[in-house]
Amino acid sequence: MFVRTQRDNFESKVVTPGQVITADTQYMRGHGTYLNEEESSHISSVAGVVERVNKLITVRPLHTRYTGNIGDLVIGRITEVTNKRWKVDINSRQDAVLLLSAINLPGGVQRRKTEADELQMRKFFAEGDLLAAEFQGSFNDGSTSLHTRNLKYGKLRNGSLIVVPPALVQRCKTHFHTLSCGVDVTLGLNGYIWVSKHSSKNLDELDPEAIYSNDNEPVDRSTRETIARVCNCINALSRHFMCITDTIIAYAYEASLKYPVKDLLKLEAMEFVTTEVRHKLSVVRSIY
């Protein structure tokens, strides 16, 4: 029983820098915390949520760079093409690497990558290209690696990117969503979100040759408008520091229909949309 109450004390406790987390010395000092001079209490060094594993207290900062976990879906931007690998910006402390051996080749054949592949690496991904990838792991020196060995991953097309704080995107069963308004949203756990035109193609019928093509499909005006609206909704949510999931985006989208797309850049409209979402969430919660 004692343990339970202790746990409750820490759950979802938000602290600011300099705030005393606990005056109990039985705990161990973790990331984001320090001991005061008399070593009698734990103090937070960042603004964030207190987390506790057994005796270890850590504070997970709200505004921070992304730290990867194996299996995470991330969206990255190629910053450099080097020897047998790409450097990818994933909003992390350092750029991740994508090895040439960790991508699917066009044609779908599985084989060793040859020298010829090495020479045409820019045909697959060039500097600036955006891609969806999976976090593969991290090495001893702190560098991290990605892979795109799945047809779900790869180059991103027909849409635009929005950047939000990584803390707002939560880990879910799937990060590829198709909203009822007819656009696809890819939520990268690193806070990069890709909103694009819905591609109706099944993964099996996807042309394996086209996975690295540099051509957008034609996007008509109404789709473009919907994409812009979804982007602005996500932006409004992130400005008000609200969680971003497919349901919340859908709520925000519904609430936003009152305004023309470009008015969603205005502060009052953003305020209105987020209050509506909050209201809706509280209604949904009270039902369950």
Partner: peptide, 22 residues
């Protein structure tokens, strides 16, 4: 940096008089 695909999306949006943020 910007990807060729993003640049293309922006360019076509401007032709359509509808930019990425509406």
């Amino acid at each position: 940096l910007i990807s060729a695909l993003e640049a293309d999306y922006i360019l076509k949006g401007i032709d359509d008089n509808l930019r990425a943020d509406g």
